[in-house]
């Protein structure tokens, strides 16, 4: 691993994202990306007795799928979720029995997991590992907001937690000949511009995404147009506007290449989701289906992924603290044959 600039690390080995699997809930399945997901749950309880168990089931199914598609047993499992003490991921790890590192960067957990496994492979310690992240609307709602049956209104700039999970196998072997390589990654810094409204996650997280993009570009000496697509995690429609605006102020035109998973996953006009999707499962469920397919099909040659996360807790926000946010970047390229 070679350090570039301040926060970016370039891979010396050829590390592939060899396979991915994405599961989504019924509402996400009805959205514009419905046909891309590998599996859509008919019922968002997944046949389980509680929404927490349903979330765990989503995670387990996705992870199990990428393990089974591998000829060799992966040596490490790394992932995270939003529930307290990341129970969904840890309980999945209990079931699959792989060596396990739980990570937490809220909705950017998938990014941190990719960076962690890539680092482990670069170190020569392992050849392949699994990453995952998951979230569930109903379990997030009770932990962070109000009971499901409570009749409250949320503002138009609020976001809708995605019910979904994504898992990927990262490996030195490209068993399916998909040709998607992790080129380098940038570890994010925590940014806090003193947004304290918990319904305003897009505005809270946009500066973190912008900071990581600018750092990545300055570390690597690239321009933004080097990438065919720059994908943020869950800024949603309103946060994306702020992301583009902040980059414009830094002299970078991002409108044409920027996509946001929270804005992509729902039909934000008609699906009653306010500004769009959010949650730890938002980025992975879109990345492991739609975005990965674009790379495999060659529709996108170079992609910069920026899962974004809000590192608050209900305790910190009730005590009046603002929302610290982070974005971890990793860049992907198609292998040159």
């Amino acid at each position: 691993m070679i350090k570039r600039g301040m926060q970016t690390y370039a891979m010396e080995k050829t590390i592939y994202i060899a396979d991915t699997y994405a599961i989504a809930g019924p509402k996400e399945g009805e959205g514009p990306l419905g046909k891309d997901f590998h599996k859509i749950c008919v019922d968002d309880t997944c046949g389980c007795g509680s929404y927490e168990m349903a979330e765990r089931q989503l995670c387990f199914d996705a992870v199990q799928a990428v393990i089974q598609s591998s000829q060799v047993r992966p040596e490490l499992y790394c992932g995270g979720d939003l529930l307290n003490q990341i129970i969904s991921t840890s309980f999945t790890a209990r079931q699959i029995g792989l060596p396990y590192w739980g990570v937490y960067s809220a909705c950017a957990s998938f990014g941190q997991a990719v960076q962690t496994v890539a680092t482990a492979i670069e170190s020569g310690g392992i050849q392949s590992g699994i990453v995952s992240a998951v979230s569930h609307f109903s379990s997030a709602e009770r932990q962070y907001r109000m009971p499901l049956e409570y009749g409250g209104q949320r503002p138009d700039w609020a976001q809708w937690t995605v019910t979904g999970a994504g898992a990927a196998r990262i490996s030195t072997e490209d068993s399916n000949q998909n040709g998607v390589i992790i080129k380098d990654f940038t570890i994010g810094k925590v940014m806090d511009l003193e947004v304290s409204d918990v319904d305003n996650m897009g505005a809270a997280m946009a500066p973190a995404a912008v900071d990581t993009v600018l750092q990545h570009l300055s570390d690597t000496g690239r321009e933004l147009r080097y990438y065919d697509m720059v994908v943020t995690g869950d800024l949603a429609v309103y946060g994306s506007e702020l992301f583009v605006e902040l980059l414009k102020r830094a002299g970078i035109e991002a409108q044409a290449v920027h996509r946001d998973c929270g804005a992509m996953i729902y039909d934000t006009q008609n699906q009653n989701v306010y500004s769009g999707g959010s949650g730890a499962g938002c980025f992975p469920s879109v990345f492991c289906s739609t975005l990965y397919d674009k790379l495999v099909d060659g529709k996108v040659e170079r992609m910069l992924c920026l899962p974004t996360g809000a590192l608050l807790s209900t305790t910190s926000s009730q005590q009046g603290e603002s929302i610290p946010c982070i974005a971890h970047a990793f860049s992907l390229e198609r292998e040159k044959k």
Binding site: V195, Y238, L242, L246
Partner: peptide
């Protein structure tokens, strides 16, 4: 704060 309040629906 001014920017996001102005952009906010």
């Amino acid at each position: 704060k001014e920017l996001y309040e102005q952009k906010r629906p």
